[in-house]
Computed example of a mutant assay.
Amino acid sequence: MIALPTRAGKPDATLAKAVDLAREVVLEVAEPGEVGDHLGAQAEGERIVTHQFACVRPGYPGWYWSVTLTRAKRGKDLTVNEVVLLPGDDAIVAPAWVPYKERLQPGDLSPGDLLPVEDEDARLVPTYLVGDDPLDPPMDADARAQVRRVAEDLGLGRVRTLSREGIDMAAERWYAGPGGPESPLAKSAPDSCWSCGFLVRISGSLSETFGVCANGNANDDGRVVSLDHGCGAHSEVKLARKQQPLPMPEHVFDTLTDDEYELI
């Protein structure tokens, strides 16, 4: 069964009886074998009725044909408004379209691909604005221009840098990712990264929560990890006696001569 939309109001009797006309209209756009049983008629308004027919076209389970008819007041001639194929509640439909920037995942970019950043991206602010304390009085245009010239003289080079929002978004993404404390690797680790000798500290506000792993034998080598992350390659990890490999036996020297070997 297909769940069809319901509307209040009693359908016009003349239009509701025009099932054969509605089917003929559908057959103008569909093959005879694609139109199934009549599913009912719904009132769309005064002297406006929509008929529904089951769709049996291969690949369209749960869809139905919809034909809308109307007539003038006291008129006997029926007019076709539209005929469409619509999905029911259980129909298979394409997923909602998502802009490509929202679909991108780390690793999707290939060599030569370009991903421009919008001018008003909230993650970035002009470099000369960085360091402004919200509690300080706002800088006027002359003061900002002076700061910009100083930044250029110092060779900062970057036109824009991370905003407070950009830093917070990165921190949330890293903390919830595989380098955070909730990953399976971290939950089974003997200790946390904050005490590991392979942790490289970073500067700025993110240094209070994150660092970079520099252990070439670790899964996270070269990646940002939270200080409460961890893995089995911690610099201070020690194997218990039962976990240590068994010692190899001493070498056996073969003292048999060729003559003695033949006598065996």
Results as ranks from 00 to 15, higher is better:
residue 134 P to L: 11
residue 123 R to G: 08
residue 115 L to I: 04
residue 125 V to E: 11
residue 134 P to K: 10
residue 97 W to G: 02
residue 130 V to Y: 05
residue 115 L to F: 14
residue 93 V to T: 15
residue 130 V to H: 01
residue 128 Y to E: 07
residue 90 D to L: 13
residue 113 D to A: 00
residue 101 K to E: 09
residue 114 L to K: 15
residue 131 G to D: 02
residue 116 P to E: 12
residue 89 D to K: 15
residue 116 P to W: 03
residue 128 Y to T: 12
residue 129 L to M: 09
residue 118 E to T: 12
residue 117 V to R: 07
residue 103 R to C: 03
residue 121 D to A: 12
residue 100 Y to S: 07
residue 92 I to N: 11
residue 95 P to W: 10
residue 137 P to H: 04
residue 134 P to F: 01
residue 138 P to N: 07
residue 137 P to M: 05
residue 113 D to L: 00
residue 116 P to F: 03
residue 132 D to F: 08
residue 130 V to W: 06
residue 133 D to W: 00
residue 114 L to V: 09
residue 123 R to A: 06
residue 101 K to P: 00
residue 118 E to F: 07
residue 86 L to W: 06
residue 99 P to C: 07
residue 115 L to T: 08
residue 98 V to N: 05
residue 125 V to M: 14
residue 88 G to Y: 13
residue 133 D to T: 03
residue 117 V to H: 10
residue 128 Y to W: 08
residue 119 D to Q: 03
residue 126 P to F: 00
residue 106 P to Q: 02
residue 109 L to V: 01
residue 87 P to I: 00
residue 91 A to I: 03
residue 111 P to A: 01
residue 125 V to Y: 00
residue 116 P to H: 08
residue 134 P to C: 07
residue 118 E to S: 10
residue 113 D to V: 02
residue 116 P to K: 06
residue 118 E to L: 09
residue 88 G to F: 11
residue 119 D to F: 05
residue 104 L to K: 05
residue 109 L to Q: 05
residue 121 D to P: 13
residue 131 G to Q: 10
residue 111 P to I: 04
residue 134 P to Q: 08
residue 101 K to T: 14
residue 110 S to F: 00
residue 121 D to E: 15
residue 111 P to K: 06
residue 129 L to V: 07
residue 139 M to W: 14
residue 124 L to I: 09
residue 139 M to R: 15
residue 132 D to G: 14
residue 129 L to G: 05
residue 120 E to D: 15
residue 105 Q to N: 08
residue 139 M to I: 14
residue 94 A to R: 14
residue 123 R to N: 12
residue 92 I to L: 13
residue 133 D to Y: 02
residue 87 P to L: 02
residue 128 Y to D: 06
residue 101 K to A: 12
residue 118 E to C: 09
residue 130 V to L: 14
residue 127 T to R: 13
residue 139 M to Q: 11
residue 137 P to L: 08
residue 126 P to N: 00
residue 95 P to S: 08
residue 124 L to R: 02
residue 122 A to C: 13
residue 122 A to N: 08
residue 102 E to G: 06
residue 131 G to S: 11
residue 93 V to K: 13
residue 108 D to C: 01
residue 135 L to R: 15
residue 96 A to W: 04
residue 122 A to Y: 06
residue 87 P to T: 04
residue 130 V to S: 09
residue 105 Q to C: 06
residue 129 L to N: 10
residue 86 L to F: 03
residue 100 Y to I: 05
residue 118 E to R: 11
residue 109 L to P: 04
residue 131 G to C: 11
residue 117 V to S: 15
residue 122 A to H: 05
residue 108 D to R: 06
residue 90 D to E: 01
residue 136 D to S: 10
residue 95 P to F: 09
residue 117 V to C: 15
residue 111 P to F: 09
residue 95 P to D: 09
